[in-house]
Nucleic acid binder design. Structure first.
Length: 539
RNA sequence: GCGGGUGUAGUUCAAUGGUAGAACACCAGCUUCCCAAGCUGGACACGAGGGUUCGAUUCCCUUCACCCGCUCCA
């Protein structure tokens, strides 16, 4: 049976993944890739970069694509101008003040809990509710009656303030009846949740020099949009891709590497004409799903989850998550690998004009979010990030489709998918259980292993010669320790798709056997044809 | 952040208020002409800090990490 415990144990044992700083007891939410893991992850990122960016042919429209398009890459810094995160919306979203209720164990956003002062006799309490604005007064009154143990006929003993307040407008929470509590004063002090990693610019930096490690790579693409346009001659529609580390202070890192605090993203921002954005959204959504299945994720374990219209920001035409049935999730539940979001012109315009207000009235272009003085809450760059079609002379702010993938989550999904227990014969022909990582050859850390069948009679010499030749082209591994069966099993656990064995016949006719990891079948090929044969099989 | 559970070798597990065992894995050698567990030998562990005690891996406290549930998930 496939279980998370077994997968975690194999990852440690074989050097795919280690806990960060393990000798000091580890740090929650940080993980290191070992010798096999780093190869897997590099292969994964290289597959993505090749398939999405460097291997893309911009001269022809791929199947299902509305038109030909261009793709270029970018690699930008982790630390950026602090204003980036204000206009991207992360600064506001990531600085929630939260309170916990000691009684109900629930957590609330401090500025979202509303309520009213209620008085009976000389006792004055603040009764809260999460109810909608229309039901708020009734709900507050109902809870207050219950708290004071008043019957309906004595309702006139209760006075409820006309003014609705949020918790952040109170001096303290001592007299607050929390939304799910029965007694007063159960809320903790509000605590700031810094979901972005704060850091300081410059050696003498004070509070004014605070900035953040990026929580996503995407913003680096948006702020370089004009640079890329001015330097690369790309024309809309085109995409900019980037692979890089991002950082988020996850509240509850859990499930192995699934929710890490330092993680790597593979993101594309695809810029297109607003009237074509729906087609491009569908194209990327379907293409990205197909990418995972092409690399070996079972379509039974993958789902495309379209967000419901009510989940979407109103400027967005659609958002879909590609999700995988990780073994640590209950049956029927899926964990996100990648989100494909239609982001409209929100990001480019926010970086031009100042942070747009997602709560802008529907049916018209979004407006810049204003502060209490009626000025932009956060100033934009003031730079023109619109695009001019040089043929039609039409000028517009491109709409953006954002396929945003998690490299570590993908690596984990491929590891989980690959873990297989099956049966293989032992030297007596009896079936024994075997653990094999059925990684796609493109992802496998080691492409082939080379063995002398036994360490004598000149087999080692030939095997070393074969190894030296292959090593120039492929990541291969040499092993002559123990019996050959044991060496095969070791490679099975590492996910090596092929094992090359030099035997007695090799001495006579310069042939070797290729053993297939999944079928255990062996075929004999000439040493001179080996590189070509392997490259063909690995393609 | 809350509640429950668990921390012993690379892995999976024992035992013990007084010398910490095993299996597999690993290393060296022997054996071995195709699928791990033949032979000999070897190296390797009580998450961290504090307390109680003559003595703590064991009891107590704190802390860190992992697992389960709740919460959160931009």
């Amino acid at each position: 049976m496939k279980s998370m415990d077994k997968i975690v144990s194999l990852c440690k044992r074989r050097g795919f993944l280690f806990q960060s700083s393990e000798i000091y007891g580890g740090v929650q939410g940080f993980w290191d890739y070992g010798p096999l893991g780093v190869e897997l992850k590099r292969n994964l990122k290289e597959a993505w970069w090749h398939d999405m960016i460097s291997g893309h042919n911009e001269l022809v429209a791929p199947p299902e694509a509305p038109s030909p398009f261009e793709m270029v890459g970018l690699d930008c810094t982790i630390i950026m101008h602090p204003q980036v995160w204000k206009n991207s919306g992360h600064y506001d979203l990531f600085h929630d003040h939260m309170v916990d209720c000691r009684e109900s164990k629930k957590r609330y956003r401090f500025d979202q809990v509303r309520g009213r002062w209620c008085q009976k006799g000389d006792q004055k309490i603040f009764v809260t509710t999460l109810a909608e604005a229309e039901q708020e007064l009734d709900e507050v009154r109902r809870r207050a009656m219950k708290f004071f143990k008043l019957r309906a006929k004595n309702a006139d003993q209760l006075t409820v303030s006309d003014e609705s307040l949020t918790l952040d407008q109170l001096d303290d929470t001592d007299d607050v009846l929390a939304p799910d509590a029965k007694s007063l004063g159960t809320l903790t002090e509000p605590r700031e949740f810094n979901l972005m990693f704060k850091t300081t610019l410059g050696a003498l930096g004070g509070e004014d020099d605070v900035t953040f490690l990026r929580p996503e790579t995407a913003q680096g693409i948006f702020v370089n949009f004009k640079n890329v346009l001015d330097s690369s001659r790309v024309k809309v529609p085109f995409g900019i891709g980037q692979i890089g580390k991002s950082f988020r202070n996850e509240i509850t890192p859990r499930n192995f590497t699934f929710r890490s605090r330092e993680f790597e993203q593979m993101e594309i921002e695809f810029f297109c004409q607003p009237d074509q954005s729906q087609q491009w959204y569908r194209y990327w959504r379907d293409r990205r799903l197909a990418w995972y299945t092409a690399l070996g994720l079972s379509s039974n374990s993958l789902i495309m989850r379209e967000h419901h219209p009510e989940e979407l920001a109103h400027y967005s035409v659609g958002t879909a998550d590609i999700e995988y049935a990780f073994p640590f999730l209950p049956p029927g539940e899926y964990g996100e690998l990648e989100g494909i979001a239609h982001r409209g012109d929100f990001d480019l315009r926010s970086h031009m004009e100042g942070k747009l207000d997602p709560k802008s009235p529907e049916g018209q272009p979004m407006q810049v979010e204003l502060n209490e003085h009626g000025k932009p809450k956060y100033r934009g760059s003031g730079k023109d990030l619109s695009y001019r079609n040089e043929v039609t002379n039409e000028r517009f702010v491109p709409h953006v489709i954002e396929p945003s993938a998690g490299a570590d989550r993908a690596a984990l999904a491929f590891l989980c998918e690959a873990y297989t227990e099956d049966e293989a014969p032992n030297d007596k022909g009896e079936m024994e259980s075997r653990v094999v990582m059925k990684l796609h050859p493109r992802l496998a850390p080691i492409k082939a292993a080379v063995f002398p069948l036994v360490k004598k009679g000149g087999m080692s010499e030939i095997a070393k010669e074969v190894y030296g030749e292959l090593k120039q082209h492929l990541n291969v591994f040499y092993d002559d320790k123990g019996t050959v069966g044991r060496r095969y099993r070791r490679q099975d656990e590492a996910g090596t798709p092929y094992c090359i064995t030099v035997d007695g016949d090799s001495l006579e006719d310069r042939t070797v056997t290729i053993r297939d990891r999944d079928t255990l079948e062996q075929t004999r090929v000439k040493i001179d044809d080996l590189t070509t044969e392997l490259k063909q099989r690995l393609a």
